[in-house]
Design a protein around this nucleic acid. Structure first.
Length: 111
DNA sequence: CAACTGACTGCCG
DNA sequence: CCGGCAGCCAGTT
């Protein structure tokens, strides 16, 4: 799948979820990266908002939302950051003492 | 119906 | 090098 997605709300969210599902295990992707791949152009906020709605819908069981972090390599999750870190650690992702992820090693390029 | 806030990012000072 | 402001879309009050 590439881009050229309609601007309808529901479809936009679907594109975001689909892109998040494409993130390989043991890797992480920034909101901006997901937004770009989803065809949002760089609206990272929409990605965060989509995931918010996603979590609220309990779809977190189907979408690896925990593999999505901010551009600084930190977890921005406002709900369960500890849970997200635990899930990432389970995937094999390591954190620094400050809880930052080594983007040079785990940042998904979008392959 | 109109305004504010929010799981972000990039540029300017 | 580090802190602050503005811009985007969608959902909620």
């Amino acid at each position: 799948m590439q881009k050229s997605l309609p601007k309808t709300a529901g479809t936009t969210y679907e594109a975001i979820f689909a892109t998040v599902c494409l993130i390989p295990p043991g890797k992480v992707a920034s909101y901006g990266r997901i937004a770009a791949l989803a065809g949002l152009g760089g609206q990272a906020r929409l990605v965060g908002y989509a995931l918010h709605s996603l979590r609220a819908g309990k779809l977190g069981d189907e979408v690896p939302w925990w593999r999505v972090i901010n551009a600084k390599g930190y977890i921005s999750n406002a709900y369960e950051p500890d849970l997200q870190q635990a899930l990432l650690a389970q995937e094999g992702v390591t954190f620094t003492a400050k809880g930052q992820i080594d983007l040079t090693l785990f940042l998904w390029d979008g392959a």
